[in-house]
Design a protein around this nucleic acid. Structure first.
Lengths: 149, 149
DNA sequence: AGCCTTTAGTTGACCAGTCATCTAATTGTG
DNA sequence: CACAATTAGATGACTGGTCAACTAAAGGCT
């Protein structure tokens, strides 16, 4: 059952597992930096962008706060404060549910939608660029493997 | 030169590039969570652990702050404050260079080394565990591809 | 020597993520 | 109906990452 530690590809590492983990973390950092650089001129962070995308996808009623935090796989406190900032910038609006007054519905505003519209093209480009040093074959291999994590 | 957007493997995505980028970010999060869970009982964070590993590798003289921040590929201010916390816990010591008094040498303490000693085994295990759902072949594919980023 | 530039590192302000705790509203059960 | 348990979300305190501005010490040049 337990796998013996396998030989790494590079002498820099103890084991193949270590090499995979660290290479993965580094690669993800590189991708994150790439997106951050695209968003930075617009004054949006990657997480803020993610929330706005989720809200655009959710349609005109928006979503309750907890649903957003589930979709982002993030803890609620972080999301609450992220929404505070998005609300202050006028990109989202919050409204308490009149039926269940614990619940807060969050929806993207006209300004938020306009921001996303401006970002759609640059982000599509960034999606390609940040992994452009990999062939389609390599990308497919990576996706198929990493999906298992 | 410019690559046309390639077909994603899953309908969830617009393009293969997007699918690769997002899958990569998610996988890295999973790995990060795995390591964090191992370190948490010891009261160390992943970044703190990284610094301690770098300092152990550097030998008894330690390293200047800026060198540490280069090796971590991180901005200096963050490292300064990380070191503040490590110093407060007694895991590192700082000493101003008597030749060049701008420079601060940071070295790991006996307590810091003892902490790492206790962590060596669990971390080696975590290196394997966090990617154990991939075969050696898949890991090698992933490493070879992601090294290009 | 005097001054300008560069280098090493710190500090302040902000965004983000996590944990623990808290409030308020709702639901479930006797 | 009343009261406990659950749920939605907010708040405080801390770690961490980034940018901009700052201090202090070297180094270089006239």
């Amino acid at each position: 059952m337990a796998r013996r530690s396998s030989t790494p590809l590079s002498a820099e590492f103890h084991s193949l597992g270590q090499e995979t983990a660290i290479t993965l973390l580094r690669a993800a950092d590189s991708v994150r930096r790439h997106f951050t650089a695209v968003l930075e001129p617009f004054g949006v962070t990657l997480q803020q962008y993610n929330v706005l995308r989720i809200l655009r996808g959710a349609g005109p009623d928006g979503l309750p706060t907890l649903t957003i935090s589930e979709r982002m796989m993030e803890k609620t406190p972080g999301v609450t404060r992220l929404l505070d900032r998005l609300e202050k910038r006028g990109w989202v609006a919050r409204e308490r549910d009149s039926e269940d007054r614990r619940r807060v519905w969050v929806k993207i505003t006209r300004d938020g939608l306009e921001l996303l519209r401006q970002l759609d093209e640059p982000i599509d480009r960034a999606d390609e660029e940040c992994v452009e040093s990999l062939s389609d074959r390599e990308q497919a291999q990576v996706v198929r493997a990493l999906r298992k994590l």
